[in-house]
């Protein structure tokens, strides 16, 4: 074997090449992307945070836990040690036949029935199942509509007003055909609290 094709020669190239390409793809490339992102899309690049007067109310892309009947509720979250832990995303990973899935769905149905006993409509499936991330910010239009009666009743508002808010925070399919129509739960609840006569503070 000539020197050019010796294993040692290839090893030297391997090590040097790894260093050079680590510089290019591991440092320069992410720095360029960060630079452009921070200049052109500052809001998105930093987590799409909803802020007002220096106070941060959340990220419009990250859901929050709601269990108070006066708020719209989101998807079930399987994160630990508390729901919607945005530092540890996780799904439930329940197999379709897992008895615990069946139990949790039944428990959720029971709670939804308890806070809204007159509602006889079937419950939209996304309201009783865990999202993949545990941080899903959205529910379906059906799931929001299902809760309108309850939220309006608890807050002493007319259903028309609440329905109008739901419509306002509904996002259609992107470009008219991509993805699913959906309602942003956090934005909707923030808007509810800002209605005249409604308070932002909540009980547990």
């Amino acid at each position: 074997m000539s020197d050019k094709s010796s294993i040692l020669h290839q090893l030297r190239i391997a090590l040097k090449c790894l260093v050079v390409l680590t510089l290019i793809t591991g440092i320069i490339y992410p720095l360029i992307v960060t630079g452009i992102a921070q200049i052109v899309f500052k809001y998105q690049a930093n987590g799409s945070l909803i802020a007002e007067n220096g106070k941060r109310f959340g990220s419009e892309l990250i859901g929050q836990p709601f269990s108070d009947p006066k708020y719209f509720w989101g998807r079930l979250s399987a994160t630990t040690p508390y729901p919607y832990n945005a530092s540890a995303s996780s799904g439930s990973n329940y197999g379709p036949l897992n008895p615990e899935l069946d139990e949790e769905v039944r428990a959720r149905i029971k709670v939804l029935k308890t806070v809204d006993p007159d509602n006889m409509k079937p419950i939209p499936v996304d309201l009783v199942t865990h999202s993949a991330s545990g941080l899903d910010p959205h529910i379906s239009i059906a799931a929001a509509t299902y809760q309108v009666h309850r939220v309006a009743f608890v807050r002493g508002l007319s259903e028309e007003i609440v329905n109008a808010l739901v419509t306002r925070y509904t996002e259609g399919r992107q470009f008219g055909f991509l993805g699913e129509p959906r309602v942003n739960v956090l934005k909707l609840n923030l808007a509810l609290d800002q209605l005249p006569g409604q308070t932002g503070s909540s009980k547990m």
Binding site: G91, P96, A132, D136, A142, G179, E180
Partner: peptide, 29 residues
């Protein structure tokens, strides 16, 4: 199919993706 016996709505439409939504994100359906 296990959830079909419960009083929930898994049918697809313009108001909800329906189907097996356990472990799926709403925006993606």
């Amino acid at each position: 199919p296990v959830l079909a016996s419960l009083y929930i709505d898994q049918s697809p439409g313009n108001l909800q993706p329906g189907g097996n939504m356990e472990g799926k994100e709403l925006r993606l359906g």
